[in-house]
Structures are given as structure tokens and as C-alpha cells.
């Protein structure tokens, strides 16, 4: 049995669940809207990050998407039906992850470029340049995709949307707004802080835009490996 039919099935499941489509739309709307609000009220903040500030809100919608897409399998015996159709659990989890990653990346990149255009319109003369802006837009797309998959992996370990979101949302809010602003060093290596370096014009930590995204990618890979391991090992 090949990978493509399993991927096709998982894609149908995502496209036919309205809450998931809503979460994807919210990624775009929340990022662009909160960025525009922040940009309108900017002082001497980092020019690029005043364009992409809304990612802090958009990534909450992104983790809601990743969490819900996986956690919907862990209710009412849905996973048993799914695995009776695709008994190779590794293949199934790879298909599920791909079906989450592709729309997340598409929406993430779209969000990045829409946010960039909106931000430049709001900021006018003080807007960041195009080269820096495009780096930010691509970084925004990658960061949102990685956060989505981080949540998806965690949801496969915890097997519950409520459990996953009650770990991730306080984590993002507290780390982003409290711990993240206070300390450099270790906090820079947390998944959402590391990825967001790509959304800044300047950075003073050890991580640059791409190395920051690589660190977030490591977090995401670990969550997915743990999720895949849990799916393979446990009784459905």
C-alpha cells in the first residue's frame, strides 16, 4: 500500500472539517490584523518586527489548527477506524503530518506576504526594505508551519486537544510576553522565540534568522518523532 492514498484521505479529512478551515483563516487574519495595529502604533521598535508583530497571535491559530487536526483522531474511536484502513502506523502518521504541513505552509507564506504588504502600507516611509521584508515573509511562513507541526506532534503524544492547548497556549503567552522579554540566553532557544528571530531587522543573541528557524525545526522534529513513536507503540 502506497503513501499517496493515505495522504489523499488525510487531505479530505482536513478540507471537510470547518473548524480546521476556520483556524487556517484565523492564522492569516490574526497575523495581518494585529500586525497592522501594532505597526500603526510603533515607536523605535525593530522595523521588521513592527510589520510581523501579529505572528504572536497568528501562531496561536496555527497551533489550534495542528492540534485539532491530530486530536480529532483521538475521540470516539476515530483512530481505530483510521488505522483499520491504514494499518501501517508510521505511514499513516507521515500522511497526517504532510496533510497538515502543506496547507499550513501555503497559508503561512500567504500570511507572510499579506502581512508584509499591509505593514508597508501602514508604515509608509519607515517601512523595512523589500529584501528584508521578503526574508521576513518567508520566515513568517516557515515559522507558522513549524509551530503548527510542533503542536501536531505534541497532540499525538498527549492524545487530546484540551491537554495540548493547555500546555501550548500558556507556554506561548508566558514565554513570549514575560520570560522572553526579560532574559536572553536560554529563552532564545525556545521554539517560538528562536523562529521569530527571522522576523527581526536586527538581533543580538547567538541565533540569526535561519539558525533560529533551524532551532525551531529541531523542536518540531522532536515533537513529531515523539508523536510518531507514541502512535506506533500504543494500542489504538
Amino acid at each position: 500500500m502506497s503513501f499517496v492514498p493515505a495522504l489523499h484521505a488525510e487531505w479530505i479529512k482536513i478540507r471537510t472539517l470547518r473548524p480546521l478551515l476556520g483556524a487556517l483563516a484565523a492564522v492569516l487574519v490574526a497575523t495581518a490584523a494585529f500586525s497592522a495595529l501594532a505597526a500603526a502604533d510603533t515607536g523605535d521598535a525593530d522595523p521588521l518586527f513592527s510589520v510581523f508583530f501579529g505572528v504572536n497571535f497568528g501562531q496561536i491559530a496555527a497551533i489550534a489548527f495542528g492540534t485539532t487536526a491530530v486530536a480529532s483522531e483521538f475521540r470516539g474511536g476515530a483512530l481505530r477506524l483510521t488505522l483499520s484502513a491504514v494499518p501501517d502506523r508510521g505511514r499513516w502518521f507521515a500522511a497526517k503530518t504532510t496533510a497538515i504541513a502543506l496547507p499550513a505552509l501555503a497559508v503561512g507564506l500567504l500570511t507572510g506576504f499579506v502581512t508584509l504588504l499591509v505593514g508597508r502600507a501602514v508604515l509608509g516611509a519607515s517601512a523595512p526594505g523589500w529584501a528584508e521584508g521578503v526574508r521576513g515573509a518567508v520566515g513568517c511562513g516557515l515559522h507558522l508551519t513549524l509551530m503548527t507541526l510542533f503542536a501536531a506532534g505534541l497532540a499525538a503524544v498527549l492524545r487530546s486537544a484540551v491537554a495540548t492547548l493547555s500546555v501550548l497556549i500558556p507556554f506561548l503567552l508566558i514565554v513570549s510576553f514575560v520570560v522572553g522579554d526579560l532574559s536572553g540566553g536560554a529563552a532564545d532557544f525556545l521554539p517560538d522565540r528562536a523562529g521569530q528571530v527571522a522576523l527581526h531587522s536586527t538581533w543580538d543573541g547567538t541565533l540569526g534568522p535561519w539558525s533560529g528557524l533551524a532551532v525551531t525545526a529541531l523542536w518540531t522534529a522532536s515533537a513529531l518523532v515523539a508523536g510518531g513513536w507514541s502512535v506506533r507503540r500504543r494500542d489504538a
Partner: peptide
């Protein structure tokens, strides 16, 4: 196995 396996927000056909 489980009558609850179908997601409530999806149509039967989907």
C-alpha cells in the same frame, strides 16, 4: 467498532 468514529462536524458522505 465504534459508532462514534465519524467526526460530528463532517458529513456522512465526506
Amino acid at each position: 467498532l465504534d459508532a462514534g468514529a465519524a467526526h460530528g462536524s463532517r458529513t456522512a458522505r465526506d
